[in-house]
Nucleic acid binder design. Structure first.
Length: 577
DNA sequence: GCCGTTTTCGGCCCGACTGTTTTCAGTCG
């Protein structure tokens, strides 16, 4: 039973309680617990009751339910709710604009619980007889159904961020905006996002609304008021909100979220007799305490400034109160890239071109790590080809001054757990990325054994894209992460945060767990093009979301320190093996 | 259902926009 499956049951319970018009705080408690269970870095199935109770939002009742679910696969209350509440009504709740009240109203009258039937009812205007439903509501429901069908699911940040920047660039030219920033989950660098939130200040908000609503790619205007407008832009929902200059910080904080982080802050405000909203922080006489900048607001609470990437209600407020926030790694700390490809396999540029591009980024080194022979699709290298590529690197290194190409390889961990090339070859390299490209559907035991036995090879330096997931494309293979991380610690193997936006693997939770265990991490782009080297920022942001610091990341080391570390690691590993 | 240097009971974050309404509930973020 995976954490996500347990969380799913709690989310389902919350949905069903909501349909039934239950106490909203009870519903919130289920959702909050579900969220924290889902993002918990250890296997819930292995926790004791005491450990479960330490998870925020989990009390005696829910801890008991988790244990019941772990033991039996479900829980009695959940089954009872399912019997009482109509199958599939959650489908209706997923329609944007259709909430629990309206869903229940429609269900009670028509017993409908699938999109197609509901769509037909709306088209035939059979909904508008219901109280408070007329033509407009029917149209909204139809539009919502269309969005669900088109796949209103979350998109990779790497696809949405450039769109957000494009919108802001146009607005800066065409609208009277002063300050403007992207907020929401994009500013927190969540790996996937649902929409674009933009915040601006302006003395003429209406003009900004007009400019936003009339963007060329704005296919649809969902809502348009004097200070807030929602559109569908290039298939993505985008919101803009204009506030007064004195409220910009409060509004930025509010719209950056997360929702849970905001609720925590407001609770702090309430305890002090204050009020926090998007206009500012106010005392009990409604006098402004702060609002112009986010820094002012956190300071007023006696908190360290909390970077957006940490605002997920994962303990950042407590840490900030005690002055114990980590000093997060920054992009400028990165000194090189340890996982890149060239024309020797499936890359599109020569080694020299890749190295030049890396040097232009201010790096001290780059590791070429082309594929090994069993990856036929990438024209993987056999023993002879590897040696030829290394000769080319040697020759290039003689030419280069103040920059070094490290000799590496991305060696396949084959489906039987052995490596694709012999130790004799691997031992001649500076570093070895090992990774899985086949047998994704193997059992948890098999996958875990493949990864851990690769770690036990003294010449393996890094496990690349450790879970194999592709966002929106492929589920992670069934790796026992806890065991993998224990083995990484034992063997001194580094774990990769693959910075390519479709991968981001390790993800933030796993990277956080690795950090807690003191495992060193390489942030690498897996570049197949020179332009891919710029994706490093996505990986750094995952590390920041994982609370990691410069010292946790191996490629923040300068060339000398890194090569010393690699040598020492190998010496230790050979002795250990 | 959770949670506590004001509480073990009684609170629990706050406002914009829409649609259907003559004052507001529903939904969203």
């Amino acid at each position: 039973m995976k954490n996500a499956q347990i969380a799913k049951i709690f989310y389902d319970i919350a949905d069903m309680l909501e349909i039934m018009g239950e106490n909203p705080f009870r519903i919130r408690a289920y959702r909050r617990a579900a969220q924290n269970l889902e993002s918990h870095s250890k296997d819930l199935a292995e926790l004791t009751k005491e450990e479960l109770l330490k998870i925020p939002g989990v009390g005696a009742d829910l801890a008991g339910k988790v244990m019941e679910i772990v033991a039996t696969g479900t829980c009695k209350d959940y089954e009872a709710l399912k019997r009482r509440s109509p199958e599939g009504i959650a489908t209706l709740l997923a329609i944007p604009g259709l909430g629990p009240k309206t869903a229940k109203l429609i269900y009670d009258r028509f017993k409908v619980h699938d999109l197609d039937t509901l769509e037909k009812l709306a088209r035939d205007h059979r909904l508008k007889g219901l109280p408070k439903i007329k033509e407009k509501t029917e149209l909204n429901i139809l539009r919502g159904i269309e969005m669900v069908k088109k796949g209103g699911e979350r998109m990779p940040l790497g696809r949405v961020l450039p769109v957000a920047n494009q919108i802001m660039e146009i607005l800066r030219k065409r609208a009277p905006v002063c300050q403007m920033e992207v907020a929401g989950s994009i500013r927190r660098w969540k790996e996937t996002v649902r929409d674009i939130d933009i915040l601006a200040t302006s003395s003429e908000p209406e003009k900004v609304m007009d400019a936003f609503a009339s963007l060329a790619k704005a296919r649809e205007v969902i809502a348009k008021g004097p200070t807030k407008t929602t559109i569908i832009y290039d298939g993505i929902q985008a919101d803009i909100r204009v506030v007064e200059e004195g409220s910009f910080g409060a509004a930025l904080c509010y719209f950056t979220g997360s929702k849970e982080h905001n609720i925590r802050l407001r609770e702090l405000a309430v305890k002090k007799g204050w009020k926090l909203n998007e206009y500012g922080l106010f005392d009990k006489n409604n006098r402004s305490i702060a609002g112009k900048t986010e820094e002012d607001i956190y300071r007023a609470f006696g908190l360290q400034f909390i970077p957006p990437e940490l605002r997920e209600d994962r303990g950042e407020i407590d840490a900030a109160l005690k002055g114990q926030l980590p000093k997060l790694i920054e992009l400028s700390d990165i000194k090189g890239d340890l996982h890149t490809h060239s024309k020797w396999t499936d890359g599109s540029y020569t080694i020299e071109q890749m190295a030049e591009a890396a040097r232009r980024l201010g790096y001290e080194y780059i590791a070429m790590s082309d594929h090994s022979k069993s990856l036929g699709i990438a024209r993987g290298l056999n023993e002879e080809k590897v040696m030829e590529e290394m000769q080319e690197i040697d020759a290039l290194n003689k030419k280069l001054r103040g920059f070094r190409i490290l000799k590496g390889l991305e060696v396949d961990i084959k489906s039987d757990g052995t490596l694709d090339l012999p130790d004799g070859i691997l031992s001649k390299l500076d570093l070895v990325n090992a990774s899985i490209h086949s047998g994704f559907r193997q059992s948890r035991e098999q996958i875990t054994k493949r990864i851990t036995s690769a770690m036990r090879n003294p010449f393996v330096t890094i496990i690349a894209h450790p879970t194999g997931r592709v966002i929106g494309g492929r589920e992670p293979y069934d790796l026992n992460m806890e065991e993998a991380l224990r083995t990484a610690r034992e063997t001194g193997t580094f774990m990769e945060i693959n910075a390519y936006p479709d991968r981001l693997d390790l993800n933030d939770q796993n990277a956080m767990r690795a950090g807690e265990m003191g495992i060193r991490i390489a942030i690498s782009t897996d570049s197949h093009l020179t332009s891919h080297l710029n994706m490093m920022k996505y990986g750094v942001q995952i590390a920041r979301r994982a609370w990691l610091e410069k010292k946790d990341i191996v490629n923040t080391l300068g060339l000398k320190e890194l090569t010393a570390l690699l040598k020492e690691k190998r010496k230790r590993a050979v002795a250990w093996a």
